[in-house]
Design a protein around this nucleic acid. Structure first.
Lengths: 326, 326
DNA sequence: CGACCGGTGGATAACGTTGTCCACCGCGCA
DNA sequence: TGCGCGGTGGACAACGTTATCCACCGGTCG
């Protein structure tokens, strides 16, 4: 900045004013300084700026890991950020095998020097303010908290999936549930039970088993479910990964899909469209979730309180070929 | 830091020494200070630190966009970084529709205040040093440059794929090539031609068409290739996306795979395993590439020159079910 | 017994920016 | 003509950290 000032024949203070679009500088000086900045390719030091002004115009997205879910979300945030004037960095905090407290530590480190606010996409929840910066949580897995949140309507998704199967005439419907410690999984199961109850169909508890959210963890329970004496005609799996694995298990048991068994998943991951047969599933509007979270965070950065503090976006069904009418 | 110093009854200078593991602090003071730091949850301000010491211990990965390719690579870097003592941030630079120069601008902004070095995963290449920080390029698309680079052996991959098809007895082999402006695509085609020449099989130029790297761009050329009078018995597609679309086109033309047409792809994207039939393809060691790039960058950060300056990792074939012997 | 030396901790000056004053200059109005 | 005022630019002190000194203290060696 000193270089720019010298080259333009003004003081650093004036350059600072120009850079920050402050009032009190004549048009002639403004253009002169702007010209020099362009010539020299000057970029303000983020560190020094934040040190002084406590603002960096950068927001961070903290993810547990870079996988399809968080990546798609990131894309949503990335698309939406252009209009806000903020920059975006993504940050994966899990390190050194520490499993607890890393979110907080990661956030604190960047807060107050690199980022003005954060969107956290992690299972364990944090406070509404960490290191003095506002935080929005996406898909919080641990129930109601005081942090502003954005998530998909997992409950409604469970209802939609179940009602779809009921509408196709199925009555013996199994639910391969997700990780019981995660709120999203519990909500999907609640939706399932609610839809069954509303339709007056009793849930056979032997048909509700925990499958987790990974293919491997679902394999055993799926096999158990399908090799019993009185097997279901349809399965609502808590996510696509377990649904796809369930299809494979079914095939290995000689069951055809959807002729002998209907399966519906949750999440609409890219693979589900390519599975054999293509998987009918419930889609989460990941990009919209990312965009909404960003919007809330920007509101908070402007000093306002986002209303509502908890946004729940609708889930929709993607009908493919893994279910059939009974 | 002042708080910590007061609480521990020492000066800020001493706290700084403790934080940085500098010599000249007694064990007693060390532990005292460490204890207070833990109590207060103190985290050094990255901005201030870099302002003074020109080091942040953070390296950045600059990607054009968050898609499967860069995400997998990111995971490789992320896995490898634990042992280095550096932190990782990812950064997507494309903004506001600017298509040129954004890499440089993004890098300069973060350089010198946030990151100590960068791994760039972008098509257009940059200088070896930007804003004074070292840079490693991954999969540079524009041929030899003076930046240290890491990429997969696209040429050998082309050879392997073609020789595989030749070994299955195919002679009329088509190549659906990638974006001609990208070095990786040209190398894959070179590998194809070399393998054909070595086997003494002449390339029918009508069977070499540009398909690009996206499913949509490949559809037309694929259809043209397969509906001609003297259609090929095998297709080597420049990437999996175009290969999968080619399979769909083939099916729509009444061709069975692999009975009537063998297809091999490139990249081994997750979808390829789930395609119908599962796609035989050439895999790039994405995680290894990320890890190698990180290793080179760390070497450069230590002041050394990485040797060799260009690392080329081997591609391997993943044999699935989309090819058969003639 | 005195000087030196290793070991320890502190004072202090940067690093590059921004916000707050303050000074100056020319013009209009009393 | 003198005073005030708006418009412009600059001086200067922070922000939180680190590197470079420098001071002190106890012990040891000559």
């Amino acid at each position: 900045m000193a270089d720019v000032a010298r080259e333009a024949g003004v003081s650093v203070a004036t350059v600072s004013k120009v850079v920050n679009g402050r009032y009190g500088v004549s048009r002639a000086t403004l253009e002169k300084v702007l010209g020099v900045i362009a010539d020299l390719g000057y970029e303000a030091s983020l560190g020094a700026r934040s040190l002084r002004s406590l603002r960096t115009n950068v927001i961070g997205v903290l993810v547990a890991e870079f996988e399809p879910f968080s990546t798609e979300l990131l894309k949503g945030v990335s698309d939406a950020i252009d209009s806000t004037g903020y920059e975006l960095i993504a940050y994966s905090g899990r390190h050194h095998g520490e499993t607890v407290g890393w979110e907080r530590r990661s956030l604190v480190r960047l807060a107050g020097s690199v980022i003005d606010g954060a969107i956290v996409v992690t299972p364990t929840i944090v406070d509404a303010e960490i290191g003095g910066i506002p935080v929005v949580a996406v898909d919080p897995h641990t129930g109601p908290v005081d942090v502003p949140t954005v998530d998909a309507d997992n409950y409604a998704g469970g209802v939609i999936a179940t009602e779809y199967l009921l509408g196709l005439g199925h009555r013996r419907i199994a639910h391969l549930s997700g990780r019981p410690d995660l709120e999203s999984a519990r909500l999907r199961e609640r939706g399932f039970r609610e839809a069954m109850a509303r339709a007056g169909v009793e849930v056979d508890e032997r048909l509700v088993v925990v499958g987790g959210f990974r293919a491997e963890s679902a394999e055993g329970p799926a096999r158990e479910l399908l090799s019993g004496p009185d097997r279901p005609t349809a399965v609502f799996a808590a996510n696509d990964l377990s649904a796809i694995r369930t299809m494979e298990v079914a095939r290995s048991l000689g069951l055809r899909i959807p002729e002998d068994l209907s399966i519906i998943g949750f999440d609409n991951v890219p693979e589900s469209a390519l599975a054999t047969p293509p998987l009918t599933t419930i889609a989460q509007p990941l990009k919209a979730i990312g965009a909404a979270a960003l919007q809330m965070l920007v509101t908070m950065l402007d000093g306002a309180t986002p209303a509502p503090a908890h946004v729940r976006l609708p889930t929709t069904m993607v009908e493919r070929a893994s279910c059939r009418a009974l």
